[in-house]
Design a protein around this nucleic acid. Sequence first.
DNA 1: GGGCCCATGTAATTAGTTACATGATTAT
DNA 2: ATAATCATGTAACTAATTACATGGGCCC
Lengths: 166, 166
Amino acid sequence: MDVKTLCLGVISVKPCSGYEIKKTIEDDFRSFFRASYGSIYPALAELERSGHVVGEAVEQEKRPDKKVYRITEAGLDALRASLADEEPRHVVRSEFLVLMCFAHLLTPERAAWVVDRMIAHFDGLMRTEVERWDEAAAELGPGERFALGYGRAVLTAALSYMQRER
Amino acid sequence: MDVKTLCLGVISVKPCSGYEIKKTIEDDFRSFFRASYGSIYPALAELERSGHVVGEAVEQEKRPDKKVYRITEAGLDALRASLADEEPRHVVRSEFLVLMCFAHLLTPERAAWVVDRMIAHFDGLMRTEVERWDEAAAELGPGERFALGYGRAVLTAALSYMQRER
DNA sequence: GGGCCCATGTAATTAGTTACATGATTAT
DNA sequence: ATAATCATGTAACTAATTACATGGGCCC
């Protein structure tokens, strides 16, 4: 799964611009996916070239024009197809845990600081997940609810482990 | 933190070859770091060029020769320095959770299969973590114990959540 | 006046992966 | 016989990030 597929997925829920896609990824996918403008805009351009989305320029008052993309029939087919045959991956890259493995080479203060940083980080993620749950629980699909619940379960476990062991 | 730093860290624990570093990463870091030969061997070459490790060819009977690297004083200093000032990162990239967010575009069978796949995947990770704990708990440093415990806590939470919700 | 929000895009760079090349030994 | 383990390395490729370029509106 690449940025292109995710963009297509986001557009399938609701037509939007590159800028809005970035917002959505930050708000709703932040704990398990990230993408920068440098990957989103080229992805959009290619999706349009291949006819999976169509973009329409929208003029706005008191702010820059934007280009809103909506998904086509072909795009929806392509999205369904790629969701249907991709291996589900789940990759964690934790330089934090590597750091902990070499904790004996750190000063105790540094080690404690590192753990505190991660607690703060997870705490931030947790806050946004709870916020989103409180605000939008009703209109969430079952899949989104599953993903959000997963995040909460894992973050809760991570936080309580770290607080217990630090 | 890049592959180079991790290689240096592994070598600091015990001199070893590129092949053995790969094994170690697979056995001890598999749930939060991965690296292929294509990144390990060039990393080793550069570490040797910069004098952070020294390699020695070791002849073996009935198997290919290997090149065992050990860390130098300068290498240990460099390792300490880089562990001391890197921001601790922890990045999750879960195409699985993205897939779940778009579960309404999947057949129910496919959705169930995807969840089962992840359960099997986490189960495999869990098994190796428990194995490692049982086998090597005594000789593990406190940092490694922390990392292993973290993995167990998070995997336990993830598994019980998925089994509950599937 | 400084800094953030809105908005789009490109170019250079990074950090890795995959696939290839080679080959003896050992286990199934 | 066939696959896996041991062992090193390179070249081509991929998929992303960062930094740059541009500019009006709004808040303090």
